[in-house]
């Protein structure tokens, strides 16, 4: 079964300080596919996600979303179709979890689901909904950030180490959320160092010497 290509990166290159970190990188993300990427520290995983999400312009090559290059699209079109989870939660620390999601919903014109529903979905207890995000633990922040991604109308999810700080139930919940998303045809790309998470993905790639290689299965 091969579904449509949602996001495609072709001959991507990214240079910093006069040195290529990513080079000749090709990637196809198909609808309903869960891809996991691993790689050494400093291999350029985070940069790759930033380029794929249109937050950074690549030095070489281009990224296309449903056939249209990112640079030709308006920023809110990209923002509506690609959801990204970064190291920083992408939440206002002095607003509560519920206020954050309500604000985001208002900003994008009511396209995301109700805040309470989302927060419940990512397993945050109702007592924490009115708490400021600043008081959340690392894992709780990660869950709140995940709620933002789950609620978005995007058909591409780019997750940068989503399992960081999550406990065992949290990881299982994350897997379930991703599975539910792929079932709806959302294409998920995840950067992770976690072997367990890695093995749950449909496709495993390794970022090495600036390119993505399929991971050799250890016997």
């Amino acid at each position: 079964m091969t579904s449509a290509v949602v996001l495609r990166a072709s001959a991507l290159g990214w240079a910093a300080q006069g040195r290529f970190i990513l080079l000749d990188l090709d990637l196809e993300m198909r609808a309903g596919q869960w891809t996991a990427i691993s790689g050494a520290n400093g291999a350029g995983k985070t940069t790759l996600l930033q380029i794929l999400s249109g937050r950074r312009a690549p030095t070489r090559g281009h990224v296309t979303l449903h056939g249209a290059t990112l640079s030709s699209l308006a920023v809110h079109e990209i923002g509506g179709r690609i959801a990204m989870l970064e190291h920083q939660p992408g939440l206002y620390l002095d607003l509560s979890g519920r206020e954050n999601l309500t604000l985001l919903n208002a900003l994008c014109g009511g396209q995301i689901d109700a805040a309470e529903e989302l927060l419940a979905q990512v397993g945050l207890p109702p007592t924490s909904w009115e708490q400021r995000v600043r008081l959340y633990s690392r894992g709780m922040r990660q869950r709140a950030a995940m709620a933002r991604v789950v609620g978005s109308s995007a058909d591409v999810w780019l997750l940068d180490e989503p399992a960081t700080g999550l406990d065992q139930p949290g990881r299982e919940l994350l897997t379930t959320l991703i599975r539910q998303a792929t079932a709806k045809g959302i294409s998920v790309l995840m950067v992770t160092h976690d072997i367990e998470m890695m093995h749950k993905a449909d496709r495993r790639l390794c970022l090495e010497q600036g390119q993505l290689q399929p991971v050799q299965e250890r016997v």
Binding site: M84, P89, Y92, L104
Partner: peptide, 11 residues
């Protein structure tokens, strides 16, 4: 602090 700069301008 929250890393919301890109997020806000993209929504």
């Amino acid at each position: 602090e929250g890393g919301t700069l890109a997020l806000v301008s993209m929504t």
